[in-house]
């Protein structure tokens, strides 16, 4: 049987860091402009798919970027920075291509239905919203918000991966990479789903009134990730 107290005492910092990473992911999802099925038909502002798919797409890219850098460097700052940048690039590319589709394919101007003026560009929004829709496309504020969300999500994923990789263990390097990755993916999905239930599926970005609900999701993620962190660190530390 494994020495539970010893492993926890030795790796308490990493348990805290994994939990922090989970909370960051949970917070990040609130920034990503998710429109769901209505947005796929250009009837709501945001990208036309679900929170989990978007968070996973960007977050997993961040994980891959962090993992690639971690293979050549031990610097914590470099690893989490590459995780954040990887996720930012992925979400930005997704959003710019979605914007091309909305503007040139569907033929709608990007417009938010939640605010009358874009908080960043000060452009008028309400007159461009088609009747019967809740906005469409990705206005500047949603784009900026999405990039911030990508950065936070990638940061969170990279912090989790770094912490799991740094746990003291007797596993061989390749086994450790595999185990840390799959744990990070598992924890990532749990923390991507919890906030998506909090926002009820769709959000435009940080200017959306639903954004104010984030403390609830972060609290729920704190509890859920803490459990996953104990389980994950015990597994890796016990081998």
């Amino acid at each position: 049987m494994i020495d539970v107290a010893g492993i926890i005492a030795e790796n308490i910092l990493y348990i805290a860091m994994v939990t922090l990473g989970g909370m960051l992911i949970s917070w990040s999802v609130h920034f990503v402009p998710v429109g769901g099925a209505p947005a796929a038909m250009a009837q709501a502002t945001g990208i036309g798919t679900g929170t989990v798919q978007l968070a996973a797409g960007a977050g997993l890219t961040g994980l891959v970027a962090a993992g690639a850098v971690m293979a050549v460097s031990d610097s914590f700052a470099l690893v989490i920075a590459s995780g954040a940048v990887g996720a930012m690039i992925m979400i930005a590319v997704t959003m710019i291509v979605a914007t091309w589709v909305y503007v040139y394919g569907v033929g709608v101007p990007p417009a938010s239905a939640k605010v009358d003026y874009d908080p960043i560009t000060k452009d008028r929004q309400d007159i461009y919203v088609s009747q019967g829709t809740e906005g469409h496309g990705l206005p500047t504020v949603s784009f900026v918000s999405g990039v911030i969300g990508g950065a936070l999500g990638g940061l969170g994923g990279a912090v989790i991966y770094y912490s799991l990789m740094s746990t003291s263990t007797t596993l061989s390097q390749s086994d450790l990479v595999a185990l840390a990755s799959i744990f990070a993916v598992g924890i990532f999905f749990v923390n991507a789903v919890i906030p998506s239930y909090n926002i009820g599926g769709t959000i435009e970005g940080f200017h959306d009134p639903k954004f104010k609900k984030w403390p609830k999701a972060v609290l729920a993620s704190f509890v859920a990730t803490l459990m996953c962190a104990f389980v994950g660190i015990l597994t890796i530390g016990g081998l």
């Binding site: 769901g36 679900g50 929170t51 989990v52 598992g186 991507a192 789903v193 996953c228 389980v231």
Partner: peptide
Amino acid sequence: LGTGVPSIGMIALGMGVV
């Protein structure tokens, strides 16, 4: 659920893999 059904399958496997 307010969001898509896929989310619940992903959280199932997320918790399951841990």
